[in-house]
């Protein structure tokens, strides 16, 4: 095992956590969207790192799919954000109506 291999995994774990933390803490939907991108990037990093360690190209191929999902998610997410903001400027995921769950 090379130290740097572990480094990639640890880095992506930290990146993922930052994204997850930001998504739950920040109230701006656009920033939340960015946090989703952070999380997906962390996963991408993990996939490529595992692919490298396994000597397998699939890790890189999977990243392509994650890219597509990320792009689609941004489109759908931004669409909803724009629709909400039209109705209510300064909208956030649970500002308007406090979670009653």
């Amino acid at each position: 095992m090379r130290g740097i291999d572990a480094g990639y995994l640890v880095l992506s774990a930290i990146l993922f956590s930052i994204g997850a933390f930001g998504l739950l803490v920040r109230r701006n939907p656009l920033v939340m969207l960015m946090c989703v991108e952070l999380m997906l990037n962390a996963v991408n990093l993990t996939f490529v790192a595992f692919g490298m360690m396994l000597g397998d190209i699939a890790g890189q191929v999977i990243v392509m799919f994650v890219l597509v999902v990320a792009a689609a998610e941004v489109v759908v997410g931004l669409g909803i954000v724009v629709a909400v903001s039209r109705r209510k400027p300064g909208a956030t995921a649970d500002d308007i109506r406090v979670l009653r769950g």
Binding site: F16, G19, A20, L23, L24, P29, M32, L33, V36, M39, L40, A42, V43, T46, F47, F50, G51, A58, G59, I62, V66, V69, E73, V76, G77, I80, V81, A83, V84, A91, A93, D94, I96, R97
Partner: peptide, 25 residues
């Protein structure tokens, strides 16, 4: 609002699911 909430939390959970796939990989 429901759509936004569903989307944000859904994307959040999808990321966890995907991270799980990466680990299994």
């Amino acid at each position: 609002e429901a759509g936004l909430k569903y989307f944000v939390l859904g994307a959040f959970s999808s990321a966890f699911f995907l991270y799980g796939i990466a680990m299994v990989y």
